[in-house]
Each structure stands twice: as structure tokens, then as C-alpha cells.
Design a protein around this nucleic acid. Structure first.
Length: 430
DNA sequence: GCGATCAGTT
DNA sequence: CACAACTGATCGC
């Protein structure tokens, strides 16, 4: 579903079938690890340092000598074999913070196949230190080169998906909690992710947050030792598995103590014009103050006890757009294919793609003095690194015309297929 | 027993 | 209902 096999079986990202020489994991959510298990024997598995630390929790008994840690922001060189010719070839890879869940990274690959970025799941907010750092790192990694293919987390790749930053959403949650001073609070979360939301609440209200025992272990591995507890008596705010979070649960809890539920989700925050397209059954929803008032008026209360807050670990449409405008890739492929309202990134972003657009990106950078310095450094660095970039550029020119004509149709066909193959030869064969 | 797949849940 | 992420049943080996 959300994975790729690259270069005719040399590299797989979040795809765990046999036939690759190197396997890359973007993050530890279950929909990216289907096929991975503790009995893994297919070869080295590359991931971020934090993912490696969390790995034994998800896959106890996994042979850890197969894990290869990639520190974020560093280039690594892999010596692989070109399947068609059998000759040795170098592939370079850099992991970049994907800002999705703890340990999540994007992978930028460079090799004789060109330059390809696989985002995994990612969130690309517009402000904040982490975002600035990520933007700098990405531009620095890409230098003045064109990005041939962007494998994009297109979960919310549709203009109707509009929601605020996670910090704004976290503030909404705090407002909901403080406006219910006598209530117990439960917040639905998954096995990994939304830690920043819980930390924000913990710090803003100076309270500990209850989590279930397995989740406390994760929190400790993430380095959070002070903000969480498994002792119910210490706090009125509890994070519970989302799967156990239901209206019945809340009704039951409310027979004991007044309790409200908070559901952080990107889903309900689709808009059509000024309206929430997901029906109007809610007692008070975001319609009235859409886009203006960002406090709890924008937190949709769809049940007497349940507040749904627009806290998403995936990019909204405008963030995806900004990301593409920054990178100006030659071509884009969505990695999410399961949705019935799936929209090809090309539908919205074709005008941002293609070889001319790649040059546009470079020209735009030169309007910024800071970036000019970076490019000059990049060019010096590039000269030191030898001829891999030359090979990549030659290959890229071949791809432009081809992709410009074919890719959109191929992508639609591939919607129904399992797996995304991005080697040139596989494009032709399909 | 394991893993792949599907159906169902929030 | 849209989604992501997860659980649990079932089937095949």
C-alpha cells in the first residue's frame, strides 16, 4: 500500500517481500511494517536511530545485527549490484526527519538511477524550529540538483483537507481540558505518535498523563521520564488506545465520574468552501468560525462527551503544496493508493512538475542570498564527491520526456496493484 | 505456529 | 461517510 521497490529490486522502502538487496523502514506504524516480523532474514534493514531503539518493542526476538542505523542528515554509501548488468554500483542515501511520529524519516537516494525522495508518512508544517531545520537539511541534501521522482505521502492531497498546525491543535486540546476543570479526560492515541501533543498538555497544565503500561515503556525509550505515569490516582488526564475509545466506553465512564473524550485526528477537517463536508449532525461544529477563531470553537464536538480536534501527523493540502514548490520534482508519485477519494498528486501539481520546473526551483533559490551561499558550498562539496552526479544528470534527461507522457496513466493503473515499482524498466513493462 | 489477507472499529 | 492505524478472524501452509 504505502511502499516502493526501487531500481529493479535493488532497494525496497517499507516493502518486505523478497528480492531486494537493501531494505529501508521509514517508521514503525503497522501499515508500513506489514510483512516484517521477528524472524526477518532477508537482509540488512536500514532505519533511523530512534526507530532502531523502538524496534525490539515491536519485534521482540528480531536479529538486531541486521539493523543498520542511519543518522539523520548524514550521507551513507551502499555498494549494491545493478540487477541487469551484475556490475557493482554505489547508492547514496540520506535520512531526513519526516516529522510524522518518533523515529520517522524520509529517504533521499542518489545513484545511477538519478535522485529520488521517498517521504514515507510526513508532516511539513510551515513554522517552527523543527520545520526550518528540516527545510534547510532537505535543500542542503538536494543541493542544486533536480529531484527526479518524489514518492509522496498524499494522504490529504486534496484542497478540501485543511487543518492547523499541531501546536495550534494542541492548544485547542488544552483549552478543552481547562474548560472542563471537574472532568476526567481521556485522549485516544495509537501505539506510536502524538507524544508531542501529550507533552504539550503535560507541560501546559503541569500534570502527569496516564498511559497504559506498554505505552509507558515506549515513553521511557523516547526519553520522557517525568511526564507520564501508569498510576490512575495521580491525574485526571489519560491517554488510552484509540481502539478502546468508543461512545460506549465514555458512557460507561460517565456513570462513575464526569468524563470527556478527546480524539486527535486529521480526518474531519475537510472543508468545502466554508462548510464542513462531513455532514452537519454535530451539535456545534467548526462552520461558524472556520478559518478565523482557532480555539475550541474549531474543535468539533460530535457527541455529548467527545471532542474531535484537528491534530494530524500527515501534511494538509497546503503543506503538501508548499513541499512540492520547494522541491520542484520532475515527477511525483503518490504512495497512498487505498483511498476511495484518492486524487493523483499530478491532478493538482502537474504545473509544478517537469524539467522546466526543476530549473525554476534553482532560479528561485538564487533570489535568496542565504541559499546562494548554501549552493556554493554544495557545489564545492559536489566537486569533491566525484562523478556520481554526472551519471545521474545524464540519466535524468532521458526520463523527462518519458515521464511527461506516460506517468499519469500508469499511476492510475497502479492504484489497484500492490506495491509501487519505480525502476525505469518496470515503468516500461507495465 | 506463522504470515498473509480481509473485515471491521474508532 | 470520508482517513490512518489498529485488532481480530480466517485461510493456507
Amino acid at each position: 500500500k504505502k511502499h516502493a521497490q526501487m531500481e529493479g529490486g535493488m532497494i525496497s522502502v517499507d516493502k518486505w517481500s523478497s528480492g531486494s538487496q537493501a531494505y529501508f523502514l521509514t517508521h514503525l506504524h503497522a501499515d508500513h511494517t506489514a510483512g516484517l516480523s521477528s524472524t526477518w532474514k532477508r537482509g540488512p534493514l536500514y532505519c533511523s536511530r530512534l526507530t532502531a531503539r523502538l524496534f525490539p518493542c515491536k519485534f521482540p526476538g528480531f536479529d538486531l545485527s541486521l539493523l543498520r542505523v542511519l543518522d539523520i542528515g548524514s550521507w551513507y554509501s551502499l555498494s549494491l549490484t545493478t540487477p541487469s548488468s551484475g556490475s557493482a554500483t554505489n547508492v547514496y542515501v540520506k535520512a531526513i526527519d519526516a516529522q510524522h511520529c518518533p523515529g520517522s524519516v524520509m529517504y533521499l537516494f542518489r545513484g545511477e538511477f538519478g535522485c529520488k525522495l521517498f517521504t514515507g508518512d510526513f508532516r511539513w508544517e510551515t513554522t517552527g524550529n523543527r520545520v526550518e531545520f528540516g527545510r534547510t537539511m532537505l535543500l542542503d541534501a538536494l543541493k542544486n540538483e533536480t529531484l527526479d521522482i518524489l514518492y509522496l505521502d498524499n494522504t490529504y492531497c486534496n484542497p478540501r483537507y485543511a487543518f492547523p498546525s499541531r501546536e495550534v491543535a494542541a492548544r485547542q486540546v488544552v483549552d478543552i481540558i481547562t474548560s472542563h476543570p471537574k472532568h476526567e479526560i481521556i485522549i485516544g492515541i495509537d501505539s506510536l505518535g502524538k507524544e508531542d501533543l501529550l507533552l504539550y498538555i503535560s507541560r501546559a497544565l503541569n500534570i502527569k498523563i496516564w498511559v497504559w503500561p506498554e505505552r509507558l515503556q515506549i515513553m521511557h525509550l523516547l526519553g520522557f521520564h517525568e511526564n507520564f505515569t501508569t498510576q490512575t490516582s495521580l491525574t485526571r488526564v489519560r491517554a488510552v488506545p484509540r481502539y478502546s475509545f468508543s461512545i460506549e466506553t465514555l458512557n460507561g465512564l460517565n456513570t462513575l465520574r464526569p468524563t470527556i473524550g478527546v480524539m486527535p485526528s486529521g480526518l474531519p477537517w475537510a472543508t468545502k468552501g466554508n462548510r464542513n463536508i462531513f455532514g452537519s449532525s454535530s451539535a456545534s461544529c467548526l462552520n461558524k468560525d472556520c478559518g478565523k477563531d482557532i480555539d475550541s470553537a474549531n474543535a468539533k464536538r460530535n457527541h455529548e462527551y467527545i471532542f474531535v480536534v484537528p491534530y494530524s501527523d500527515h501534511s494538509c493540502f497546503s503543506e503538501i503544496q508548499e513541499f512540492i514548490e520547494l522541491l520542484r520534482p520532475i515527477n511525483i508519485k503518490g504512495i497512498v493508493s487505498s483511498s476511495s477519494c484518492y486524487i493523483e498528486p499530478h491532478y493538482y501539481f502537474d504545473h509544478l512538475c517537469g524539467s522546466k520546473q526543476a530549473f525554476w526551483r534553482i532560479n528561485q533559490q538564487f533570489e535568496n542570498e542565504e541559499v546562494i551561499d548554501r549552493i556554493e558550498d554544495a557545489e564545492k562539496q559536489s566537486a569533491k564527491e566525484g562523478n556520481s552526479t554526472v551519471v545521474g544528470r545524464k540519466r535524468r534527461i532521458d526520463q523527462v520526456d518519458f515521464f511527461g507522457i506516460r506517468v499519469s496513466r500508469v499511476s492510475v493503473l497502479r492504484r489497484l496493484s500492490r506495491g509501487v515499482k519505480i525502476a525505469d524498466t518496470e515503468y516500461i513493462s507495465e
